[in-house]
Nucleic acid binder design. Sequence first.
DNA 1: GATGATCCTAATCAATTGATCAGGAAACAG
DNA 2: CTGTTTCCTGATCAATTGATTAGGATCATC
Lengths: 216, 216
Amino acid sequence: MAQSTAQERNLRPSADATRERILAAALDLFSERSFEGATTREIAARAGVTQPLLNYHFKTKDELWRAAVDGLFDELDAALTARQEGLRGVDDLTVARLLIREFVHFSATHPQLHRIITQECKNDSPRMDWLVERHIRRNYDAVTAIFERLVAAGHVPNIPAPHLYYILTGAGPTMFVLAPECRRLAGIDPEAPEVVDAHADAVIELIFGHRAEERT
Amino acid sequence: MAQSTAQERNLRPSADATRERILAAALDLFSERSFEGATTREIAARAGVTQPLLNYHFKTKDELWRAAVDGLFDELDAALTARQEGLRGVDDLTVARLLIREFVHFSATHPQLHRIITQECKNDSPRMDWLVERHIRRNYDAVTAIFERLVAAGHVPNIPAPHLYYILTGAGPTMFVLAPECRRLAGIDPEAPEVVDAHADAVIELIFGHRAEERT
DNA sequence: GATGATCCTAATCAATTGATCAGGAAACAG
DNA sequence: CTGTTTCCTGATCAATTGATTAGGATCATC
């Protein structure tokens, strides 16, 4: 006979659902307020639970931070991997343009990603060590390898890959990371799909220029 | 008869010298650790004084933050104003290239600037309100006006000025803001003058491309 | 010489923080 | 029906934080 889960039967609250609500609240507050600026009381309130429950699900505040960041990078990896898989057989230049578009879109829908990165990687600390070795290095290696091939093929100006990496890492996400400032200064909503598309267009235009179009 | 100051006569410590040491320590720690992450005890220790002295010179932690940030923007304004004054009569394109170079260099020698901006402008708060209205808006207006003229003259691709502003604000400083990460990932020192020059070259190359050179 | 001002530290405080503990409610297993 | 497990909250704790207070040392002024 088919058996439904406790959650499906609308019985005792599922730990999984509560954990996910806590992780989502944690990610938002850690990225907006910093690790120290986000208190466990505020995270609990945002998740709709009491403060000691955080310690029930995650041993320490630091462990909660790591779990929240793991989930975020898992999502990024899944998005880029899926995109890249779907582009097998496509030429390097087109792939790169589309991956950058995907990256800008992911940055727009997940501004927490670069908020966390810029927050944790500005000074040496255990959290930066963990973040770089567990998540960032893999992306850095992949992105610089792609840029090296593009430079060699003449698709991108002769700029060292590390510089291209940091130019992209800055140019792509900053408008979305600073969305509150952008709304206030420019009076535009960085979350609007047409704004995100325009930004992806602009970043791609500046990195690749009209080179592919010149070839046509 | 010429009278020397107490400080010149090496007598009682000058309040000004102590204030400057406190401001420098505050700027470094606020930008590296966030407002909440930087404790008044750590700032005092870095400045070589005791914690209550911060309250003697600055009424509150928030007032100390504002004074530290004021000093930083004063320095930026002075640098850009002096540079711009020296370029009167030079054509728009050359001025823009040189101002961007100056901006990248300032970002390299003052990574605190964009650490503070990215930290405070990711969510609405009184500190962001103050920062935007007192300092950032003036720069935003000036930079977007320059970009609008450059686009109209065909020197820069037809990209809306707000997008160009955030692309520049991201591409220029990020390598220096994330200097500890960059050392660890890329094995290069973002503070090295040749690295700073290469980065300025790269940013200028991507924004302006070979357009000016094509005209020659 | 007395008094006031300046620059500073040690001690202290109230409030807040992250974590722990006791225990309740409800579902599950036998 | 009883005991166990799970998920959770209220109360509490030690440590930390930003700010306040008392007072010392030294210089300036009268």
